[in-house]
């Protein structure tokens, strides 16, 4: 795909007090592609995602969306741009049903009253559009859903808002084999619909199964951004663990010194 990136970060720095978590990070996300964001624990994946989502303000660096410089200072700003994050703990309310969860905080209203019918229709259309057929009723409480179904609802919630970039934080971490396959299939479908998908994962099988590009973070630096088809399993593992792999990766030492 020859399109430019929809979301591009350049030279991002982020510190928490004396601890610098992100050093001069560049990161690009392309529409219609799944970009896997990998890195060991503490590499800065979550911080990077939270900077994109506006939860942490960036100290310095450029945030470009559709080629234009934007200023994201809160979750609302990110949502307005069309950036949605699906967190690991899903953020669903067990005591509400699927439709209520999908529209939480952004309910459709006609006058003062909630427009339940329109919301239900839109939810049904979104789920059907994602070819989700595993839920019995849209009016069942989220508490009665399986892990995979919950993940599906959380992803559908992010897609509902005509979002352009969907970031998934370890969507398969807690799932069984069959459910993982289901969710990965869904991730692929999102990209095929033209969305830019960022997939954070520790599971190399998942990463190689669905991603088009891989971005590897190492100790707060972007070690490499590569096409999945051009690298091997072993190379990525090396990038994650030591920041370099042959020609790829950080050039000077282990990166932490400079």
């Amino acid at each position: 795909m020859s399109q430019g990136p929809i979301l591009e970060l350049r030279g991002i720095n982020k510190s928490f007090g004396p601890v610098q978590v992100l050093h001069d990070v560049a990161f690009s996300v392309y529409p219609g592609e799944v970009t896997a964001l990998v890195g060991d624990n503490g590499a800065g994946k979550s911080t990077l995602v939270k900077c994109i989502g506006g939860i942490h303000p960036i100290d310095s660096g450029e945030y470009l969306f559709e080629g234009e410089r934007v200023h994201v200072s809160g979750p609302r700003d990110a949502a307005v741009l069309g950036v949605e994050i699906v967190y690991q703990d899903l953020a669903l309310c067990d005591n509400l049903d699927i439709v209520q969860n999908m529209f939480l905080g952004r309910e459709r209203k006609s006058g003062l009253v909630l427009d339940e019918d329109t919301m239900e229709e839109m939810a049904a259309k979104t789920l059907a559009g994602l070819s989700v057929r595993t839920v019995k009723s849209l009016r069942q409480h989220v508490s009665s859903l399986s892990g995979g179904q919950r993940q599906t609802v959380a992803i559908a919630k992010a897609v509902l808002w005509n979002s352009k970039v969907v970031i998934l934080d370890e969507p398969t971490a807690a799932l069984g084999v069959a459910q993982t396959a289901q969710v990965l299939e869904l991730v692929r479908r999102l990209a095929d619909r033209g969305l830019a998908v960022v997939l954070i994962s520790h599971n190399m099988n998942d990463v190689f199964a669905v991603s088009d590009r891989i971005a590897a973070l190492y100790l707060g630096r972007m070690a490499a951004e590569v096409k999945t088809s051009e690298v091997t399993h072993a190379q990525i593992v090396e990038l994650i663990t030591s920041g370099r792999s042959g020609e790829l990766g950080l050039k000077n030492g282990n990166g932490a010194a400079s």
Binding site: A91, C93, N95, L96, Q100, K109
Partner: peptide
């Protein structure tokens, strides 16, 4: 029937989810 009522249930069910939903 109101968004306010829905939000009460949401906060009671999962306050963190409600916060993230704005």
């Amino acid at each position: 029937r109101t968004a306010y009522g829905r939000h009460i249930y949401a906060v009671g069910g999962n306050a963190e989810a409600a916060r993230r939903a704005g």
